[in-house]
Design a protein around this nucleic acid. Structure first.
Length: 228
DNA sequence: TTGTGTTTTACGACCTCC
DNA sequence: GGAGGTCGTAAAACACAA
């Protein structure tokens, strides 16, 4: 729900103002932030003082005093719409443009400047949120891809282990055979079979067996697509 | 009822640019 | 040095959950 909009609408039904205290309160005290540690650090001054009655926004339409309280008008829908339109055209505000907008909307130029400052801040926040969402999405995809690859590694490791076991068995059976049958083609192939599985036969450009697996090739396509 | 979060307007402090 | 920027926050009204 858009609370601000709702508040605006409600304000429009009654008076267009809301309370605004005149006196500095406790929260307007000096706040000094210091970096932890004994070293002498530069204090960050945070002096708070609300604008007192009679300073810049003294336009009677903008500020009125009721029961010791200053009342500050909330901008009307029309004013906000105009400001939004202007902001859409250009986020920065030169002096001449500020005066022009203020004149057209019946606002104090200071109000226009403040509105633009706050609008820029909101815009920046929104951009940051969008950027964060994009990065998070990318990160999630990378993590997903990593999981898929890890699961493939597990599967292929199992296959490799089974194949090695099979080769061992075949070798053992061959060794048990009488030596005069050593001229058979089977024994030659078995004796030349790789037992460690680091590399495929030379005919495949020294590409490891697992790289010839279809799943592996698909996963590589996935990564290529991810980084385009 | 009360505490907490959101939105809007406004301001102080500090920074940058001309 | 002044104008205008960012950043952090106050204050008020309101919604909503506990």
């Amino acid at each position: 729900m858009d609370h601000g909009r709702l508040m605006d609408d409600q304000m429009m039904l009654g008076s267009q103002v809301y309370p605004y205290t005149t006196q500095p309160q406790n929260s307007h005290c000096i706040i000094v932030n210091q970096i932890d540690g004994g070293e002498e650090s530069k204090p960050v001054k945070r002096r708070r003082k609300r604008r007192s009655k009679g300073s810049s926004a003294t336009n009677e339409e903008d500020v009125a005093e009721i029961g010791g309280m200053l009342r500050k008008r909330k901008l009307t829908d029309e004013q906000v719409n105009m400001l939004e339109y202007s902001f859409g055209n250009e986020h920065k505000l030169e002096s001449g443009r500020k005066e022009k907008i203020a004149g057209e909307l019946g606002l104090d130029p200071r109000q226009v400047a403040v509105w633009f400052q706050n609008r820029r801040a909101r815009w920046k926040n929104k951009k940051l949120e969008e950027e964060y969402a994009k990065l998070k999405n990318h990160h999630d995809n990378v993590v997903l891809g990593q999981c898929q690859l890890e699961s493939q590694i597990l599967k292929l490791t199992e296959q490799l282990s089974e194949a090695q076991s099979e080769i061992r068995k075949l070798s053992e059976r061959l060794e048990e055979m009488p030596t005069n049958s050593s001229s058979s083609s089977l024994s030659v192939e078995a004796n030349n079979a790789p037992t460690d599985f680091e590399l495929a036969p030379e005919t495949n450009y020294n590409i490891p067996f697992y790289m010839l697996d279809n799943n592996y090739l698909q996963s590589m396509e996935y990564w290529d697509g991810l980084y385009v």
